[in-house]
């Protein structure tokens, strides 16, 4: 390593050598704590998950590496249902939150100078934990919640069971509502930030060249926002795909999202099911990783396109 570094070869005197060595290694030293932490917590944990998914579960009956558990989990009758249900919830929550987030960001842009309280409006939901939002959604939208009581008071229903099931339902409406509350402000914040930075430069040029408001939006702003929207999409999708507590607490028992399914496997008293649980965790990781790779590729593609357009 040291021979390859131009700095270490050129240092002649002892005093400056140490300083230059430090300068050369400084970035590595600075990231070392993070790398060690990630290495211990993430890589080791992931490695142990992979090992357990291959049947290496200390304490359980057999300790031979095998793909048996992958086969069993993948062939189980409701695995595909769980997978598609997970994709469905993640996709609906993500698409809706991104769409609404972009719309809100544009509305805010068109309003020009914004008072501080408006910013608070989307900053507050971001810091509220998911658990609190779950309780809010439950108290508002369950069959005996505030909305149902209001409907009863207005005479729309005569029994709580007549109120449509919005929490614990098969369509996952309650789950999606929680994610919307959390993710629309997130999307808004990121998109609005990008919008603020680009609009000043391009807006006047576009108007000078005779563009209308609609043209400004569709021809200039949206294409420029592409990478931002895509990254927001992938972050929120990956999160929703792997998150546990929301579907666990207000999902239907009929269909389990993958993280919930992994949890139920893990909690079975029979320890061999830990392997099945880890199989699902590994699959979730692989799918999320796939999304990260797709993201970087698409991003590179877009960057190449925009650079080509400028030339």
């Amino acid at each position: 390593m040291q021979e390859k570094s131009p700095l270490s070869r050129s240092c002649g005197k002892n005093t400056s050598c140490a300083g230059r060595l430090y300068a050369a290694w400084r970035p590595y030293i600075l990231v070392a704590p993070l790398v060690i932490f990630m290495g211990l917590t993430f890589v080791l944990a992931l490695g142990s998950a992979v090992l357990q998914s291959l049947g290496f579960v200390p304490g359980a009956a057999a300790n031979v590496l095998t793909l048996r558990f992958y086969r069993e989990v993948l062939l189980e009758s409701d695995f595909l249902t769980s997978l598609s249900y997970t994709i469905y919830i993640a996709l609906v929550a993500t698409l809706l939150s991104n769409l609404l987030g972009v719309m809100v960001a544009f509305v805010m842009l068109s309003m020009g100078q914004r008072p501080k309280w408006q910013r608070l409006l989307y900053q507050v939901p971001i810091v509220i934990p998911h658990l609190v939002v779950i309780v809010l959604v439950f108290h508002f939208f369950s069959q005996t919640g505030v909305a149902s009581r209001l409907a009863y008071w207005l005479g729309c229903i005569t029994h709580p069971n007549q109120f449509p099931l919005l929490v614990f339902d098969r369509l996952g409406i309650g789950i999606v509502l929680v994610y919307l509350y959390k993710q629309v402000p997130f999307a808004t914040m990121i998109v609005a930030g990008t919008l603020e930075n680009i609009s000043a430069r391009f807006k006047e040029a576009a108007y000078n060249l005779g563009a209308g408001r609609l043209q400004l939006c569709t021809q200039i702003l949206l294409p420029l926002l592409g990478p931002t929207i895509l990254s927001v999409f992938l972050i929120t999708f990956a999160f929703t795909f792997g998150a546990f507590e929301v579907p666990f607490l207000i999902g239907t028992p009929a269909w389990n999202m993958l993280p919930v399914k992994a949890f139920f496997y893990y909690m079975r008293p029979d320890l061999t099911y830990r392997a099945s649980s880890m199989v699902i965790n590994v699959l979730i990781t692989v799918i999320s990783l796939g999304f990260a790779i797709a993201y970087s590729h698409i991003l590179a593609l877009i960057q190449r396109q925009t650079e080509g357009g400028e030339r």
């Binding site: 069971n161 099931l165 614990f168 339902d169 098969r170 999902g251 239907t252 028992p253 009929a254």
Partner: peptide
Amino acid sequence: LWEGGRTYPA
């Protein structure tokens, strides 16, 4: 049953 058995309390 409740909700026609499409879902059950958890």
